[in-house]
């Protein structure tokens, strides 16, 4: 089994330098740098929120809170190159808080509460997928919660670092690789049962 990657590649160093520069620029008023941070890390935030199965109204609050809080923390981050991990941790904590409060899951007749919900955007999109892709995505969604949560974050685009994934799921960096491998194995097994071809596995 593969060992967790501890050494840092040249690519990681460049990535960290770039992110550190964006944080520094955004901290002193560079809105383009802020927008670049949002573009880069929003998919990570969304993947974490989706992994926790937060309802759409709470998901928007979590998203907004994470970014608003980051605005005020930009110049105060101890490790600006790890802003992705900061975002992941903050998003995770906000999701757990939202689940604990679960305020909006109480039935209400107030229209305003529903107005903010996503109007079935996802459902429409799925009609555009090929039959095979739609089947694979349905299969993905039937994975056990822990696997689905981890993999949903791993497959965010751009790909999060192991550090960011670990922060998002509350596991150590070292356990991400093995857990990921186990979850993919499970997906392969379900795909085989469902008759979906995922291509050959090296371990076979």
């Amino acid at each position: 089994m593969r060992q967790a990657k501890v050494s840092v590649s040249r690519q990681d160093v460049e990535h960290q330098q770039e992110v550190r520069n964006l944080v520094a620029a955004a901290a002193v008023g560079d809105e383009a740098a802020w927008n670049a941070l949002v573009d880069r890390f929003s998919p990570l935030v969304y993947a974490i929120v989706q992994g926790f199965r937060i309802n759409p109204a709470d998901a928007e609050d979590v998203n907004q809170t994470v970014w608003l809080r980051l605005v005020e923390h930009l110049g105060r981050l101890r490790e600006p190159e790890r802003v992705g991990a900061w975002i992941a941790t903050t998003t995770r904590n906000e999701c757990l808080r939202a689940l604990r409060l679960a305020r909006r899951q109480v039935p209400t007749e107030d229209e305003a509460v529903f107005e903010r919900a996503d109007p079935g955007e996802g459902t429409d999109r799925r009609l555009l997928l090929s039959e095979r892709d739609a089947a694979l995505w349905r299969l993905f969604e039937t994975l056990p919660e822990r696997c689905k949560q981890l993999l949903r974050i791993v497959i965010a685009d751009p790909a999060p670092s192991y550090d960011e994934v670990a922060s998002a799921v509350g596991l150590s960096v070292g356990s991400i690789g093995p857990t990921r491998a186990r979850c993919l194995k499970q997906l392969r097994r379900s795909a085989e049962l469902a008759g979906i071809d995922l291509g050959p596995s090296d371990s076979e």
Partner: peptide, 23 residues
């Protein structure tokens, strides 16, 4: 799966807009 997720469940535009407006 990354390519599939980007098509099946992309980051909603309104979340991106809200994040940018936070600034």
């Amino acid at each position: 799966l990354r390519s599939l997720a980007a098509r099946a469940d992309p980051t909603p535009e309104r979340m991106l807009r809200a994040a940018k407006a936070s600034y």
